[in-house]
Every structure is written in C-alpha cells, then in structure tokens.
Write a protein that binds this DNA or RNA. Sequence first.
DNA 1: TTGTAAGCGTTATCAC
DNA 2: GTGATAACGCTTACAA
Lengths: 317, 317
Amino acid sequence: MVGIKDIAKKAGVSISTVSYALNGSPKVTDATRQRIVAIADELNYIPNMAARTLKTQKTKIVGIYLANYSGVFYGELLHGLTDTLLAKGYELIVCSGMKAHRFLPERMIDGAIILDRGFSTEELLEYADRGHKIIVLDREVEHPNVRQVLLDNKAGATLAIDYLKTGFTGKFYIVTGPTNTYDSEERLRAALSELERFRDEEVIVIPGDFSKATGEKAAQQMEREWTGEPVAVFALNDEMAIGMYSYFAKTQLVIGRDVKIIGFDNTEVGQYLHPRLATIEYSKYKWGAVAAEKLLKLLEDETVEDEIIYTSLIPSN
Amino acid sequence: MVGIKDIAKKAGVSISTVSYALNGSPKVTDATRQRIVAIADELNYIPNMAARTLKTQKTKIVGIYLANYSGVFYGELLHGLTDTLLAKGYELIVCSGMKAHRFLPERMIDGAIILDRGFSTEELLEYADRGHKIIVLDREVEHPNVRQVLLDNKAGATLAIDYLKTGFTGKFYIVTGPTNTYDSEERLRAALSELERFRDEEVIVIPGDFSKATGEKAAQQMEREWTGEPVAVFALNDEMAIGMYSYFAKTQLVIGRDVKIIGFDNTEVGQYLHPRLATIEYSKYKWGAVAAEKLLKLLEDETVEDEIIYTSLIPSN
DNA sequence: TTGTAAGCGTTATCAC
DNA sequence: GTGATAACGCTTACAA
C-alpha cells in the first residue's frame, strides 16, 4: 500500500508537507503542491480512511436506518437524502439490521437518520447522550442532539376521512398499522377525532400491521360483515389498501361501488389499480432532503428546528 | 471517549491484557476476562472501529453499488444479500453515487457487489488489480478477483419470444434498454436469434433506456404505425412495459386484444395491471444470496465459480 | 514554506 | 498469563 510516506520519499519532502499539499492547506507553495499531487496520482495514492478517521474522528458519512428495503417507497426518500448530502461532501449509506446500529457509537458514521422501529428510542437516546446527532422520521423524541422531521399525519388523516365522507353515509372501517407506531397512532387518532364530528357514523377499527397480508385479512372481515350497504375504509397505508384490492377482486364486492377505499403514502402501485387508489400524498423526496439538511446543520452545531412534511389528497377516479 | 486504556487502568492490568480479554483470546484466564468484560460495559466501552481497521485492514463490511434506489426491484435482492452476510458476521451497506466508489480502495469495505453501470469496468478492474474482491451482477469480467452472478437473459428472452409467438402472427416490436448494458444486449440478441427461427416475421427494434418514459414513447410509435393488425412487443424490462400500459390506456388500442406485451423482471406493479403484465421472472432474493455467498468465499480466498440465475415465464391472464 | 514529532485507539510481537 | 512496546497511516501543533 502506498501512503504519504512513499510520496514524501519520492518527492524529497517530509510527510507533513505531503499531507498539507494533499489537503489543500495554504501553508504550501503551489509549485510543491503540484509536484506532490502529480507524484501522488502517479503512484496511485489513495488515502487510508481508517487512519484519517482515527485522527479526525469524522467520516463524512451519514447513515439512514430503514426497517426493511421493500418498496418504491424509499426510492424517492433516498434521492432526497443523497442529493443534499452529496452537495455538502457527505456520503450516505443505507443500514439495516441490528448490528449496523453500532456504526453510530463506533463512529463509522457522523450522524444518523432513522426510519426504523427496530431502533428503540432508549438505544437512540443512549447514543444521543454520547453526543451523536440523530434525525428521527418515525417518532417524537426530545433531546438536544435529536431532531424530528415528521409527516403531517393529522392533516392527512383528516383529509382522508373527509374524502370518504363526501357523498357517503354508512359504516366506516379503519385498518391500522402496528401498535406503538407513531405514524399509525397519529393517523388513527386524527381519523377518529374527525369522524367524531359526525356523531351518527359507526366506525370499526381493524388492527393491521401495514402489510399487504393484514389488508387482505381486513377485507375478508368486511366481506363477512357485509350487510348490503356500501362501506368506506381508511387503510392507514397503501400497502394494506393494495391487499384489500387483491382480496375484493376475488369477491362479489366491487371497489368504488360497494367499498370506498383510501390509503396513505401514494405508493406507485396505487395508481395502476382499478379504480386508482385514493391516497394521501406527500413528497418523499422533500422528506429526505429536509432530513439531510437538518442533520448537516446539527453536525455543524447550528440551531435546528423540527419540521413537518405536509400532505395532500389524491382522489380515486 | 473511553478506550481500552481506561479499562486497563480501572482493572489494574495492561492494555494488551484488555485487548486479549475482549477479543476472546485464550491467553487470558477466565477470571480476569470476566472482570475486564464487566468493567468494559460498566464503562460503556465501545471499540473504535477506525483504530481496529487501521490495524487489521478489515472492516467486515461489504458494499452493494446500485445505480439508483428506485423500485421494489431491489428490496428482495437486498434481503438475499443481508440474510447471508449477517449470518457470517458481515454488514451490508448500500452505496450510490460516484464518491462512494472510493469506499473500496479506501478499504472502508472488504468487498463490493456491483449492479451499477455508472461503475465503469476499467475502474473496477483497477480495484481488482489492487487486490479488492468484487462480484458483478451486470457485466462479464475476467479477473482473478472478480466473479459474476448473472441472469440467464438468454433463456428468459427466448421464453418471452416463444410466449408472444404462441397463437400470434404479425408484427413484432422489441423495446431495448440502454446501449452497452449487458442485460439489454443479451436479451436483445437472444430475442432476435429466437425470432429468426421464424423467418416470416417482421421485427422492429425500438431503442429505449429501461425507463417508463421510453416505454411510453415506444407505445406512441406503435400507435402511429398501427395498421389494424395486432402487434406483439417484448419490452426488455417491466418498467418500460408499464410505461406502454400507461400510454395505450389513453388510446383506442387495447392490450391483450390489439397489443400483446411481455416484460422482464417481474416487478410488483406488473401484477396489478389489467391484464396482468406477462413477464420473465427470477428470484431476486436468490440473486442476492448467491452474490453474497460468492463474495464471502472470494474474501476467504476459496475457489469460486461464476453462477447463473435462472428465469421463468409468467403469462398474462 | 517546510520539517519534526506527538498522538488517534487498536492489535500483535515480543519478553518476562 | 500478563505487560511493554512497536506498529497501522494520517493530521496537526510547534519548531526551524
């Protein structure tokens, strides 16, 4: 392996001069810098990041923790993240799995963005206490080293209920996400509170877990409980709504006529369903971009506020 | 930051003893090990990975390079990768963007898996020459430090053509991927050679780039060239086929009657289209699992063969 | 402007 | 079985 030592030898200067030259320090003349840089890439020099990190305690890498990799869902989010990180000289790595949690305390990454319920809030706070900077996308946390960029679930859920409500009277269903999930609980709370404004309605809450499978099970239950009257359902995410489409397709019940459905997230698949899945949309790109921006500011010790990502309605057709 | 030095002081032993104890060396008595381990997590000790890496030149991390994060496409692939890597004590990080290429020569990762045309073969060979181990998923490379795990595009494309051919006579279209892409070229070559077996057919090749947009443009061209006779089209990936669905939906031409389409990749969206998108399927999970397995063997200096991932047909309905 | 040298936190090679 | 101590490759005072 060729290091600055080799370059120094070949250039007839000391290693510190090489270091200065390569790091663009003004302490070195342009002439020597040019000479050193030339030698460096003639020798195919590549800096050893471990050595640099050991010294500087910074890696210029941030990690995003995702619960699972599935779904187009994350694509846009990651684009938003990388676009703003790369612009500031940072790299992004996507982490998953418990063992990768160590990246933070081991200082392999300078900061973390979390959208992963598998990362417990206690653990997260432990790292925050150690001084690590964190942005959470899936919970509320109060800590000087943690900021949150959350979806406006309340507004989204309210829009969803209002959508279902227009031109419809009858039984309401809500299919929830996993318990103790911020997004699910917020959406449920807001939906119920909006429904309360219309005292007369019956609402049945079916527990789900944001998976297609629980969407199908929920649809099955609705079929069982079918009375001949149309029903409206708010699936707290698109994934479950898609599961419901799959199930209803095999029954006599037709979506749009017997069952009115709305999801949440505006995943790609939804727009190809018949009829198009009504859903709550938000900019995943912006979500990522804002999260990255906040994290960078936090790393620079600037003052940072929490932020909300707004939502809007996409009706069916 | 607490390091082995602090533990040593508190335990009244030397740092080397602490290092031995923490790394499970047999050179230390169980008694002292227990004492040291106890002190270590009492002090909340976390090993510094930069220091260890600097010394050992190994990180136990492998990187996967993806061209873009979009699509459910990668979800399964990544699952296959992580499942087998974690089982062997390795971590996976997902890399994207040119700057992350440095992770390999900088030794931030022990090895790489590549599915990213942005990573040029020259660069790749340069790293391989430096001794880095690489698995490629998107090209053919001959090098002792590189192995390939490729799709059986030939079989897949042949299946696709045979599918289109059954019960159909008329004009054939093929919409390609970007030029110089292994998968696109292989599929095109195999498709054309299979079509040649039926001399009588006319085949029109439309250049695309695997994006939805070029699929739409191709569909537009087909509409323009429409003669009233049904046409069959092999879109070299699902993404473009989906774009074609979108376009044809706005025209008089109906898929299944006027246009027979098949894609490649079996992406999730395809199954929700009407009619279901015919496509060529393969196990993305297995693709990832095999790639990871090969890389690990390469890292252990075991002998490793290239491998092929088989494909099968999913018809429309 | 350049050189000397002291770390950064480990691991690993020696002695003891 | 345990303890000094020399690397690992780099950054950065401080000295020249």
